[in-house]
Amino acid sequence: MPDDRTLGAPAEPGSGTSGAARVLVALYAVFALAAGSRAGVQLATRFDEAPLAYLLSALAAAVYLVATVALARGPAGRRVALTAITVELVGVLVVGTLSLVDAAAFPDETVWSGYGRGYLYVPLVLPVLGLALLLRRRSGRPAER
């Protein structure tokens, strides 16, 4: 049963919820679904073509799912959200760089290839926004309403 700390509750002073946080949860949920669906189809039908790329897309989907759930839990999920979003940012930067430096290692794109160019660079921007929101709250600055 949701309580006032979840993002489904109305934003009240001191509740830790905000419109920005709700949008972030929605974006993470969409990316978890998109990356998971894409990876599922690729792993089931073409695994032998680019196993590394498809497994990295599945990893991205798992990270997005963990971030979604943690962010939706509000303050109770803050530590897990910080960890998941940090892993996501490192993944985007490492895979994005490797996919540009050694394109032969990635015969098919991952969610994080080219810093997320196949998803309009949202995979690069999303963790930056997520960390900014979480760190702003940590510093005691009020979240947007």
Rank of each mutant, 00 (worst) to 15 (best):
V95Q: 00
F106E: 00
T110H: 01
E109A: 15
S113T: 10
W112V: 14
Y119F: 11
L100W: 08
S99L: 07
L100Q: 03
G91E: 01
Y115S: 12
S113G: 01
L98A: 01
G114P: 03
V122M: 06
L93M: 05
L120A: 08
F106H: 02
V111P: 03
Y121Q: 11
V92I: 14
V122C: 05
L98Q: 11
R117T: 03
L120G: 08
D108R: 15
G96I: 06
P107H: 00
R117V: 14
Y115G: 05
E109S: 04
A104Y: 13
L124K: 08
P107K: 04
G91F: 04
V101P: 13
F106T: 12
W112T: 15
V122N: 08
S99W: 07
Y121N: 13
E109L: 09
L100G: 13
V111E: 07
G118P: 00
Y115W: 15
P123Y: 02
G96N: 01
T97P: 06
V111S: 11
V122Y: 03
F106G: 01
L100M: 14
G91C: 02
D108H: 14
E109Y: 12
F106Y: 03
T97N: 02
A103I: 13
D102I: 12
L98E: 05
D102H: 15
G118F: 09
P123D: 00
G118T: 15
A104D: 15
A104W: 13
D108C: 13
G96A: 06
P107V: 11
G114F: 09
S113V: 04
D108S: 08
W112A: 13
V111C: 09
L98G: 06
V101H: 13
G96E: 01
T110D: 00
L98D: 01
L100T: 15
F106M: 11
L93N: 07
G91H: 04
G91W: 08
V92K: 10
G114D: 07
V101F: 13
L98P: 15
V122F: 04
T97A: 06
W112G: 12
G118C: 10
V95P: 08
P107T: 01
T110C: 04
Y121V: 11
S99Q: 04
V92F: 10
P107R: 06
Y115M: 07
T110V: 08
V92T: 09
D102V: 14
P123W: 08
R117Y: 03
E109R: 15
P107A: 09
E109K: 15
A104M: 11
G116D: 09
T97H: 01
V122G: 05
F106I: 14
V92Q: 00
F106L: 12
V101S: 04
S99A: 06
V95G: 06
A105I: 10
L98Y: 08
Y119H: 12
T97C: 00
